[in-house]
Amino acid sequence: MANKVEVKELLDAGVHFGHLTRRWNPNMAPYIYMERNGIHIINLYKSAAKMQEAGEALAKIAASGRKILFVATKKQAKEIVAEQAERANMPYITERWPGGMLTNFVTIRKAVKKMASIDRMKKDGTFNTLSKKERLQVDRLRAKLEKNLGSISDMSRLPAALFIVDITREHIAVKEAQKLNIPIFAMVDTNSDPREVDYLIPSNDDASKSISKVISYVADSIVEGLSDRKTSKDSKKKDENDEDGGGKVAKSEMAPKLKKQKAEVPSQDPEDQKAMREAKQDVKLQSKQKTLDKASDDNGEEE
């Protein structure tokens, strides 16, 4: 369960400041409280509700073990997003959005593998066998790849969701996510279209304080989801160990019982065995006597 959002904290962070009224998007009307000095004021009660809703959804995604990709190429958002995404152990893009990052993910993965191969070359000494010019070129390529793709080097498959700061600026990322039906979470200002986002947070996406407040809350929700996942894994492992231990105990307890049962099977009484032998002898004697009697009768008749 995500922590409750305090409206006063949002107010102190300046989350309520929107854009100039002449630059507004009419679809944001439900989230605008009023207009003051030519600037739209965002309804913070709705912002708080939407933040909590987004936080709960992100926590569930994190608890399932899937990745959430953070996207923010704005100067005032780069450091904040990078810091919070690393804290939540999630991938992020803070430089230029590489075209086809989602729709052509196979090619992006090849570039990441190329970066890994350069690192292997440096470890095994192959890099030192290159000429000075070639080493310089490889170093430049490695630096370029690290700058653009270093933060997603551990992302082996498409993310389960995107969190975007300023969907107007990151419109390419939005289009790619829509094409692949990837859920979009975003900070949406009064100049953006909320219909392009699955989970919007009406907020000021220009001020660093506002961005920091929203992103830190989102990161906290993801961390909470990850901790729930770890707890459930540990409890499941413990239950499996208990079951294995119980099975072993039961088996060890059954063994002596089975032995006991085998030992308790009664053998035949010696007297009974003797009686059986005597009966068999009697039968044999009787049959022999009958044979002798018959032979004697036959001899008498012949005489």
Rank of each mutant, 00 (worst) to 15 (best):
P183S: 06
P183Q: 07
P183G: 11
I184D: 09
I184H: 05
I184Q: 05
F185P: 03
M187I: 15
M187V: 10
V188H: 04
T190M: 06
T190D: 08
T190H: 08
T190G: 08
R195H: 10
R195E: 10
E196G: 06
E196R: 14
V197E: 07
D198Q: 10
L200D: 02
P202V: 09
S203L: 06
S203W: 07
S203I: 08
S203F: 04
D205H: 14
D205N: 15
D206A: 11
D206Y: 10
D206R: 12
D206I: 14
A207C: 01
S208K: 11
S208T: 13
S208P: 07
S208Q: 11
K209Q: 13
K209T: 14
S210R: 04
S210L: 05
I211V: 13
I211R: 02
S212V: 00
S212E: 13
K213N: 02
K213R: 15
K213Q: 10
K213H: 10
V214G: 03
V214R: 03
I215A: 05
I215Y: 02
I215S: 02
S216I: 01
S216R: 14
S216M: 04
S216D: 06
S216N: 14
Y217S: 01
V218Y: 07
D220W: 03
D220H: 07
S221W: 01
S221T: 06
I222C: 02
I222R: 03
I222Y: 01
V223R: 12
V223T: 12
V223E: 15
E224A: 12
E224P: 01
E224N: 12
G225M: 09
S227V: 06
S227D: 13
S227Q: 15
S227P: 01
D228S: 11
D228L: 10
D228H: 08
K230V: 00
T231V: 12
T231R: 15
S232I: 03
S232G: 00
S232V: 04
K233M: 12
K233E: 14
D234P: 01
S235G: 00
K236T: 05
K236Y: 07
K237S: 11
K238C: 00
K238N: 08
K238Q: 13
E240G: 00
N241T: 09
N241P: 00
E243G: 02
E243N: 14
E243S: 08
D244M: 13
D244H: 11
G245I: 10
G245C: 08
